[in-house]
């Protein structure tokens, strides 16, 4: 049995093959394929790399090199919801650090850490392009801006 069949649903394999067709080379499909793998498993495990490598014919060490270069690929298991809080200058001067402390004290959520119930992981971000409405964060794919402690409480409520 090939590792891709163990790791991926047939739908995901098909999706990657379709992505492949959008580019003149298989290699160019690597970034989107890694996104598919990450969506399927929550993170890029060695097996996930092997599976992507198998489908695209890109050597696995190269796939892993690429996957560890980019900050948005997760190379270790993550909680169900990923809180991605910006602390770059514009957010910082408007209180992002206080929010980091707040997440730590109230939710036990350390930067780079995951809550014991696996509900949240916290990732400190560089600028996410919401400086005019700072401080800001992304939870999974959703933007939240003009954050305050109280607002964060309300937002996190929505994520189980």
């Amino acid at each position: 049995m090939d590792i891709k069949d163990i790791m991926f649903s047939q739908a995901a394999i098909k999706e990657i093959e379709e992505i492949r067709a959008k580019y003149p080379t298989a290699r160019a499909a690597l970034l989107p394929a890694l996104y598919v793998a990450q969506r399927e498993f929550g993170w890029l495990s060695p097996e996930a790399y092997e599976a992507v490598s198998e489908i695209l014919g890109v050597p696995k060490a190269i796939a892993r090199g690429v996957g560890t270069f980019y900050a948005m690929y997760k190379n270790r298991p993550m909680g169900r919801n990923v809180v991605q809080l910006c602390t770059n200058v514009s957010c910082m001067i408007l209180g992002a650090e206080r929010l980091v402390d707040f997440l730590k004290n109230k939710y036990g959520l350390e930067p780079g850490g995951t809550t014991p119930d696996n509900r949240f992981s916290l990732v400190i971000m560089e600028c996410i392009g919401a400086c005019g409405t700072a401080p800001a964060m992304l939870i999974n794919d959703d933007f939240y801006e003009n954050l305050t402690e109280k607002y964060i409480d309300e937002i996190l409520e929505k994520y189980r």
Binding site: P59, A61, G65, T68, F69
Partner: peptide, 15 residues
């Protein structure tokens, strides 16, 4: 390893 031998066994990890 990648460009001449073509084995691509090692890579630069992280950045």
């Amino acid at each position: 390893c990648e460009g001449v031998q073509g084995a691509s066994a090692i890579g630069v990890i992280d950045r």
